[in-house]
Computed example of a mutant assay.
Amino acid sequence: MTDETSGVDEFEALRRYLGSVAYRLLGSVSDAEDILQEAWLRWRATDRSRVEEPRAFLTTVVTRLCYDQLGSARHRREAYYGEWLPEPVVSEDASPAQLAELGEEVSMALLTVLEQLTPAERTAFVLHDVFAIGFDEIAGSLDRTPDATRQLASRARRRMKNGGRRTTVDRTAHREVVSAFASAATRGDIQGLVALLDPEVVWHSDGGGIVSAGVRPISGVDKVARLVVGLYAKFIAPEAGVGWAPVLINGVPGMAWHDAEGTVFGVVVFELTDGRITEAHVVVNPEKLTHVTRITVTS
Results as ranks from 00 to 15, higher is better:
A132V: 15
F125I: 00
L142N: 12
N162V: 15
E83P: 06
R187M: 01
G163D: 05
N162T: 15
E92P: 05
N162A: 15
E176W: 11
F131L: 13
E176M: 12
A94V: 03
T172C: 14
W84V: 01
L114Y: 04
A156F: 00
A94Q: 00
A109V: 01
A185M: 06
T123V: 10
G163H: 08
T167S: 14
G164P: 10
S141L: 05
K161D: 15
A148S: 11
A184G: 10
D147I: 13
L85W: 04
S183G: 07
E104Y: 06
R158W: 12
E105G: 01
G134Q: 09
P96F: 04
F131R: 12
D170H: 14
V130C: 08
H128K: 13
G140E: 14
Y81D: 12
S91R: 13
L142G: 03
A173F: 14
W84P: 02
A153R: 00
P146H: 07
A109D: 00
P146I: 08
A148P: 06
R77N: 10
D129R: 11
V130A: 08
S154Q: 13
T123L: 10
R187V: 04
A182N: 11
L111C: 03
E105I: 05
P96S: 02
V130H: 05
G188S: 07
E83L: 08
T186A: 03
L117C: 07
R175F: 11
H128V: 10
L114T: 02
H128Y: 09
A173M: 14
G82V: 01
P88C: 05
D189S: 08
W84Y: 15
N162H: 15
R77K: 13
G134A: 12
E83R: 06
S141K: 02
E78D: 12
G164R: 07
A94K: 06
V178F: 08
R159T: 06
L85G: 00
E176A: 10
